[in-house]
């Protein structure tokens, strides 16, 4: 499903005028929304996509089911100090929202802030694996 969605986006980019992306169009958003189709529950197709990409990295059971990719281990040990990986795996958000969430966790929620290098690794991982943008 995700591969088809990407193909549709690519076609839209090729076919549309230069401002097709900049001009808001709720009909385009509606056509891209469909994640999983269920013949027994019409609410399922209305959800924003949350399933893991079929061609993406496999879930690592030893890291709370996080997708096995560079940064997974750093992310796991940073996050599970406070909460399980369940809340991470539910997210499909923008890069800007991940930056804000990081800042909120440090400033408001008492999260230990790692060295800048580790922080960058973790944020890059989150923005890659749990993104609404890619």
């Amino acid at each position: 499903m995700r591969a088809i969605t990407k193909a549709v986006i690519a076609l839209a980019l090729l076919a549309g005028p230069a401002d097709a992306q900049a001009r808001p169009d709720p009909m385009r958003d509606a056509s891209l929304q469909a994640g999983t189709i269920s013949q027994t529950d019409p609410m399922v197709a209305l959800r924003a996509p949350t399933e893991a990409a079929p061609d993406g990295p496999a879930a690592n059971a030893e890291l709370g089911g996080l997708p096995d990719a560079p940064g997974a281990e750093e992310t796991y040990y940073q996050c599970v100090a406070c909460h399980s990986t369940d809340i991470i795996k539910q997210q499909r958000i923008t890069d800007a929202r991940w930056d804000e969430l990081w800042q909120w966790m440090v400033e408001e929620q008492g999260m230990f802030e790692p060295d800048p290098e580790t922080r960058d690794v973790i944020l890059a991982y989150l923005k890659t694996q749990f993104s609404s943008e890619r």
Binding site: D29, L32, Q33, M43, L46, R47, A48, P49, T50, I87, Q90, Q91, R92, I93, T94, R97, L101, S132, E133
Partner: peptide, 11 residues
Amino acid sequence: AYFNPGSSGNQ
């Protein structure tokens, strides 16, 4: 869960 793009928090 039905907002797209998604927003942070429990879905």
